[in-house]
Design a binder for these strands. Structure first.
Lengths: 126, 126
DNA sequence: CATTTGCAATTACAGGCGTAATCTAAATAT
DNA sequence: ATATTTAGATTACGCCTGTAATTGCAAATG
């Protein structure tokens, strides 16, 4: 068990919708996902319920339906996912990952420019 | 299905052993994992077999046993895992990941120094 | 040869995941 | 008041995973 309460891939797609905007009803979420997935309504409701059970979203009654909102913050999720990957593959550090991508020539101009700027700022800060 | 032929977490631990040294017999792999896991021999053999079935390791008879070696290269695996994560969480680019870690103040001195050097080299190269 | 032994192959089994269909209770319409 | 619609809750189901135990077979040994 790598993660105490892991969010599955499909579940994270639903979280993304709630991170973009909250609270939302199940129907809202279904509507938001209609374009990008071909999941049935029932599927999305299942995912919402599993997320509820995992304690990472809350549901507040609103008339006949519920309004869902994320309890887990996106930054937290992003961080734990990233850290898990860095730990597994890059000895827990960021630089080796960047090195890997540069070796594979998979750094875009944009990436390079941004990285350069970032590093300069950090350097200046420190 | 995100990955055509995904390697599970437990399986990747076995791959790690083979990436470090190949070929190795099942017994070698068991020995290598004795320190870091408490998996039974049978478990490790199951994992080897699943990896075989997935076509990411090969087995060559060596007397009564087999010698296993990875067919998938570590760099390929690392790349696909990293790319999947970057795509999911950072719009497919490296810089935002670095930015995230710097915002969370999770960049070590070492990371910073390495990144700086890397960027300089790349800049110089380009 | 017959038997033990060392490996690999097969089988097991519960829980999670992707993907829903169906059931039920509440609200609304007739 | 009853019928219908609607939304959530329950149930389903096959595949993957983690974690093995058991079986089968070939080689070594008595």
């Amino acid at each position: 068990m790598v993660n105490a309460m892991a969010i599955s891939d499909a579940e994270s797609v639903v979280m993304d919708v709630l991170w973009r905007k909250a609270p939302q009803s199940a129907e809202d979420v279904v509507a938001a996902l209609a374009a990008s997935t071909d999941w049935q309504e029932a599927t999305i409701k299942t995912l919402l319920n599993r997320l509820l059970k995992k304690g990472v979203v809350s549901a507040e009654r609103d008339g006949k339906r519920y309004l869902y909102r994320p309890l887990l913050k996106r930054a937290e999720y992003v961080h734990s996912e990233s850290k898990t990957l860095l730990d597994r593959l890059f000895d827990g550090r960021v630089a080796p990952l960047v090195a890997h991508f540069s070796e594979q020539r998979k750094l875009s101009k944009k990436d390079l420019a941004e990285l350069k700027k970032l590093i300069e700022e950090l350097d200046h800060d420190a």
